[in-house]
Design a protein around this nucleic acid. Structure first.
Lengths: 129, 129
DNA sequence: TTAATAATAGTAACCATTTCTGATATCTAT
DNA sequence: ATAGATATCAGAAATGGTTACTATTATTAA
């Protein structure tokens, strides 16, 4: 099943590359519809799954609702606000270091990692509470 | 809404404390049914949610299917096998250290973290592939 | 022991995601 | 260019995990 070009997939990937808000599939869908009004949500899901299987994007599992997608595949960790649900990048080099450290202490073969931090984001703090 | 004792909740918590396989809600359900044959799956979910809100257990989000629950609330990280889906503890002190480090580099208030490592577990490696 | 109310079982609803189907687009070899 | 071969699509239906609802039962405090 050789891969074939599709303008929908191209558009989905481009959309992810141009944003840093780690959207859900639904958020990508809303955006892509402006260009391809009758693209289907299933197509968005299928291509997000395909792209992450290819390693061109990253899928993030969170404790708060739907999966998120990240067009930035360089190892980095994420912050999820418990209040507004926003997902932010945490610019640091932790994943590489920590994977080495952890690999030394286990017999399982570690291939990737997901470092998620939860709390209250800057904006929500300022709004009080 | 003061908390009231319930033998179902007690049993669910005890079940989690006695196992280290980080079961899904369904796996807990299967076990508890041996004691309370007509407990409902909804009750299991409700109590797992309640217990984790109380901080008595931990909920884990993974990229591979259903959420997992952990009766061990001491900070530690986890390993998920991509092949068999098993979830293992990674005995180390990383969470505390890493949270401090990361907190220094961000304005968001970090309250907790989830460190998930993915790969192939020891058993699956031995079976080849 | 009774009254107040939290928790339950069972079921239905909900949401995110995947699967299915016939039609369409892309690609390969003429 | 054309004609298969087949990957991808849109749309809809199905699935899986989880939550919400309701009438009944269990726990608790007076």
């Amino acid at each position: 099943m050789a891969l074939k070009y599709s303008r929908q997939r191209e558009s989905i990937k481009a959309n992810l590359m141009h944003r840093t808000d780690h959207p859900t599939a639904d958020m990508v869908y809303d955006d892509i519809r402006k260009i391809y009004p009758n693209i289907s949500l299933g197509t968005v899901y299928r291509n997000l799954g395909l792209l992450s299987a290819l390693g061109e994007i990253t899928r993030l599992a969170t404790l708060t609702g739907a999966d998120r997608y990240d067009g930035n595949t360089r190892p980095h960790s994420h912050f999820v606000c418990r209040k507004c649900g926003c997902v932010y990048d945490l610019p640091n080099d932790i994943p590489g270091e920590i994977m080495e450290t952890v690999q030394k202490g286990t017999a399982h073969r570690i291939e990737e990692c997901s470092l998620m931090f939860y709390g209250t984001c800057e904006d929500c703090r300022e709004e009080g509470s």
